[in-house]
Computed example of a mutant assay.
Amino acid sequence: MATVTLKGNEIHTIGNLPSVGSPAPDFKLTLTDLSTRSLSEYEGRKLVLNIFPSIDTGTCAASVRQFNQEAAELDNTIVLCISKDLPFAQTRFCGAEGIENVVMLSDYKDGNFGKTYSLEFTDGPLQGLLSRSVVVIDEKGNVVYTEQVAETVDEPNYKAALEALMDA
């Protein structure tokens, strides 16, 4: 179990993120067109998993905007923005914001991504949602960087994630 805070109050996840150097666990997530996407479909590409509780919060929206901007300049890299938001909400947000350089994915159907990556909240007001985290995966499918943001209302360390991506 990992402990983070929400506005200074402790909340917990079901475990810890996959360790650096380990193979990234497979997943099945839902695209905005309601089709299913798995990790294997991104084989041979570098991935940034930008994971957050809900697109309808300021910090989550800011992380999608920032990674959208950064992703436009990255070679052989895809940024996957993952939450439990319905694909309809993700589509609405991206359309309103002009977000075109990231892939929005939802864990709303069965929640297996949050369980497999051990970042589903087990208590507090965000129980059942995903903890704000970043996981960077290299072309071989191995985890090269992780961050579970200690204070949920804070943004992730974009610079560290992008540096890990460049070193991968």
Score class of each variant (00 low, 15 high):
128 G>K: 07
117 Y>W: 09
65 R>K: 12
98 G>F: 02
60 C>Q: 08
163 E>L: 12
52 F>E: 02
72 A>Q: 04
159 K>H: 07
62 A>F: 05
49 L>R: 07
57 T>G: 05
156 P>N: 14
124 G>V: 08
160 A>Y: 11
164 A>M: 10
94 C>M: 06
124 G>F: 08
50 N>V: 07
24 A>N: 04
141 G>T: 01
168 A>I: 04
71 A>E: 02
55 I>E: 00
163 E>W: 12
81 C>L: 06
23 P>G: 00
100 E>R: 01
108 Y>A: 08
119 L>H: 07
111 G>I: 09
20 V>A: 12
139 E>S: 08
168 A>M: 01
86 L>P: 02
30 T>R: 11
76 N>E: 13
40 S>N: 13
17 L>V: 07
20 V>P: 05
146 T>H: 15
89 A>D: 02
126 L>G: 04
23 P>R: 00
79 V>I: 05
54 S>M: 09
43 E>W: 01
36 T>K: 13
84 K>W: 07
136 V>E: 07
16 N>P: 07
154 D>P: 13
167 D>R: 13
97 E>A: 05
151 E>L: 14
30 T>G: 05
156 P>V: 15
160 A>V: 11
167 D>W: 10
107 D>Y: 05
138 D>A: 02
113 F>D: 08
44 G>R: 00
65 R>H: 09
146 T>A: 15
147 E>L: 12
129 L>G: 09
68 N>D: 10
152 T>Q: 14
25 P>I: 08
27 F>R: 05
64 V>I: 09
39 L>E: 04
